[in-house]
Design a protein around this nucleic acid. Structure first.
Lengths: 374, 374
DNA sequence: AAAAAAAACGCAAACGTTTGCGTTGTCAAA
DNA sequence: TTTGACAACGCAAACGTTTGCGTTTTTTTT
C-alpha cells in the first residue's frame, strides 16, 4: 500500500514556522533599534548587513552578531521602496554546463520562467557559473540563497553551507540542515506506470534503470518491485536492468536489451528510468523486428522533446516546468527571508514533485476491443 | 488518449501578462504624478483611491477615472510600509453556511491556512457571510478580490462582477471574464480510478454520480465512460447511476444500489463521485451480505475524515489542502493586484487541481497472488 | 613628526504611500 | 450679515530602508 507521494510533498510549505512566531522576546526590532543598541549609526549597520564596503571587519562582525541575536529581519517592503530586490537568489550551474557545452534549452526555459516568477515577488535571480569550489565560494558570497541545478559533488554543498547560505538542491540530496531538496517523485511515477500497464492487461513487464548508487535510480527499481507486487504481477528479476553509469544511455540500453527482445520469452512492456534509455530500448525493439506498440509497449521518463515526434510518440512522464518553477521560487523566498538568523534551523526536507503522466501512442491494450456503448 | 490534466492546469499562472508589460505609454505613474496631473494634493488622491471619507463624490470619480486611464497601480511596498495590507481578499461563504449551521471543520482549516499563506505576502483575508445579494453587495465593496466558497447561484457572481471586483470560484463556474474557476480535476481522478481497478484485474466496474446538471457530476460520468473505453473494459450502461439532486446522498445511494448488489450479475468494483455516495454504497453492500473488499471494491472521492476510520478504510481521492491554498492565494494576488484597471481582461480561465489518490483497504486485486521475488 | 591618503563612520535625503491635523470653502441657522 | 457647523481639501510627518556625501579617525608616506 503506497500512499500517494504528492500527499506529503507540498505540505512542507505550510509547516515552516512563520518569522514572527519565532521571535521570543517581543516586538520587531528594526534597523534603527539595532543601531541604537550598538551605538552605531543606521547607515553603518545597513552597510554591514548588506556586505557593502565602508565598514571595518570588526564592526561588521559585531553588527551581524547582534542582528542574529535580536532576530533582526529586514522589512522587505522598505527594501523594495528603493527598488532594490529584497532577495537575491543565485542559480548555480554545474561546471559541466559552463565548460564544454552550452546550457541546454530546457535549462534556459527554466531560467527565464524562474526569473519571472521571482520578479513578481520583488526577488532577483542571478545565474552563476563556476569552475571550482574557490570560484563557487566567491560567487556564493553575494547571494542570499543558492539554487543548485545539475550534477555537483558533496563538497560544493559543503562550501555554501559553511558560508551560512541556505540552498535548494534540484534532483540532488545533501546532509546539511539548511539545504532542502526538490526532487521528482519517481516512486510515484513508477507506480503509475506499472498500474497503467497492468490496467491495459500487461503482466510481463520489465524495467531499465541506472546505477543504484544514484538515489533516484535506486528509487526507480524499488518502486518498480513494490508496484509489481502491489498489483500481484509476476516479477522477473532478470528483467530488471541496472545500467552502469557509462552505459546508462541510448546505446548502452540498446545493447543490453537486444538479446532479450530477440527471445520469445520476452516482456510485453518495458518501463525506463529516462527517455534516453527508452530511446535505446526502442532501437533494440526495432532491431529485433518488433513493432511498437503492437509487440511491445514502452514507457519513458522526462518527456524529452523528441519523444513527441516519434512514430509512435512515446508515452512518458513530465515534470511540468511551471510547477517546478513555482515550487522553487516559493522555497527560495521562504529560505531566503529567514537568512538572519540562519541558525533558526528548518529541518532538512525533501519536497517531492509529482510528475504528470503523458499518455501517447507507445502503449497498447492487451485486452480484446469492446464496442463503444452508451 | 487522455492527456494528463495537470499538464495544462498550473500553466495559467505563467501566462498572465505582467503589469508593466501592459503599460503602453511609458514609465510607471505614481500617486504624485497622478496628483500633479489632476491638480490635486496627494492626500486627496490617496483618499479617493482608498474609499476613505473626506473627499467629494465628484473628485473621487475624477480621480478613479484618471487612475484607470493612466494605469496607475499602487506600490505594494510603500503600502506595506505603513503596515497596511496591500490587498484585501474577501472569502464569501454561501448563505447555507451562515444560516442554519456552523462552518464545517474542513472549511475552518482552509480559512486558517489561507490566511497564513496570504499573510506571508502581506495580504489580508476577510471572511464574509451574507444573507442576500444586497448584503453581498455591501460586503463586496470593501474588498479587492472575492473568493467564493460553497454553493451560490449565478446572480451572486453577477453582483460582484458589476462592482468590477474580480472573483475566484471554488468548484463553481461562471461566464464572466474577470472570474476564474478553481476546480478539482475529476476527469483525471476518475481515469486514475478506472486504471487502478483495471490494473488490479477488475473488469466489471460501475459508477455512481450525481445529477448531470451540475458540471462536475457530468464530468465524472463522461470521464468514466471514456476511461472504460480506453482500457477496453466492457461498459454496462445500467451500471452507471446518476442520482437526482435530492437522492445524491448516503441513503439515496444505498437504496439505489441495494437491488443491484443482491443479484449475481453485479459489478466487482464501484466508483463514487463522492464519499457520501460511497458510504451509501458500502451500506448497501453490507446489507446485501457482501464483504469489502473481498466481494466488491469501492473507490470514493473527497477523503472525508470518516473514510480513514472505516473497516476497511476507504480508498478515495483527496484534494490536498495545502495545494488548494497555495493556488487560491496565488491567483487571488495576481487578480487583486491588477485591480486598476480591471478592464485589462484576463481571459476566463479554469485551473484544474489534480487530486491525490489515497490508496487504502477497500480495493483488492482479482489476480492470483504471486510470491514476492528478488 | 608632519602631511597626505585611505578607511571608517555619521548625516540626511530619498523611495511611494497613508493619515492626523490645519486650512479653506459652502451652506444654513441666528 | 454674522456665526457657526461641516464638508472638502492641502500640508507634512511618518513608515524602514539605502546611499551619496561630508566628517572624523586611522594608517601610510615623506
Amino acid at each position: 500500500m503506497i500512499a500517494s507521494g504528492a500527499l506529503q510533498s507540498m505540505s512542507a510549505f505550510m509547516t515552516f514556522e512563520s518569522p514572527e512566531a519565532a521571535a521570543g522576546e517581543s516586538a520587531k526590532v528594526d534597523i534603527t533599534e539595532l543601531a541604537r543598541l550598538l551605538g552605531l549609526s543606521i547607515g553603518t549597520v545597513s552597510r554591514s548587513l548588506n556586505n557593502r564596503p565602508g565598514v571595518s571587519l570588526k564592526t561588521r562582525k559585531r553588527v551581524l552578531a547582534a542582528a542574529k541575536e535580536h532576530r533582526y529581519s529586514p522589512s522587505s517592503a522598505a527594501r523594495q521602496l528603493k527598488d532594490r530586490p529584497s532577495l537575491l537568489v543565485g542559480l548555480f550551474f554545474a561546471p559541466y554546463y559552463s565548460a564544454d557545452r552550452e546550457i541546454n534549452p530546457s535549462a534556459l526555459g527554466l531560467i527565464e520562467r524562474l526569473r519571472l516568477a521571482l520578479k513578481t515577488q520583488g526577488v532577483d535571480l542571478k545565474v552563476l557559473y563556476f569552475k571550482d569550489n574557490q570560484d563557487l565560494k566567491e560567487q556564493a558570497l553575494e547571494v542570499n540563497v543558492g539554487l543548485f541545478y545539475g550534477h555537483f559533488d558533496e563538497s560544493s554543498f559543503a562550501v555554501v553551507h559553511d558560508l551560512g547560505i541556505p540552498a535548494i538542491l534540484y534532483d540532488k540530496q545533501s546532509g546539511f540542515a539548511d539545504q532542502i531538496s526538490v526532487v521528482a517523485d519517481t516512486r510515484q511515477s513508477c507506480n503509475v506506470a506499472v498500474q497503467y500497464l497492468a490496467a491495459l492487461g500487461h503482466e510481463r513487464i520489465g524495467m531499465v534503470t541506472g546505477p543504484a548508487s544514484e538515489f533516484y535510480y535506486l528509487a526507480y527499481k524499488e518502486a518498480f518491485i513494490a508496484s509489481m507486487h502491489e498489483f500481484s504481477l509476476p516479477l522477473r528479476p532478470d528483467w530488471v536492468f541496472e545500467q552502469s553509469a557509462e552505459r546508462c544511455n541510448q546505446e548502452g540500453a540498446c545493447e543490453t536489451l537486444l538479446p532479450l527482445l530477440q527471445k520469445t520469452d520476452r516482456p510485453t512492456a518495458l518501463i525506463f528510468a529516462s527517455d534516453w534509455l527508452a530511446l535505446g530500448g526502442r532501437k533494440a525493439a526495432l532491431a529485433a523486428g518488433l513493432s511498437i506498440p503492437e509487440d511491445i509497449s514502452l514507457v519513458g521518463h522526462d518527456n524529452l522533446p523528441i519523444t513527441a515526434e516519434l512514430d509512435p510518440p512515446l508515452t512518458t512522464f513530465d515534470i511540468h516546468l511551471g510547477r517546478v518553477v513555482q515550487t522553487l521560487a516559493q522555497i527560495a523566498i521562504q529560505l531566503g527571508s529567514h537568512r538572519l538568523p540562519p541558525g533558526n534551523s528548518l529541518e532538512n526536507r525533501t519536497v517531492l514533485l509529482l510528475p504528470d503522466f503523458v499518455k501517447r501512442g507507445s502503449c497498447r491494450s492487451l485486452r480484446p476491443a469492446v464496442p463503444a456503448a452508451v
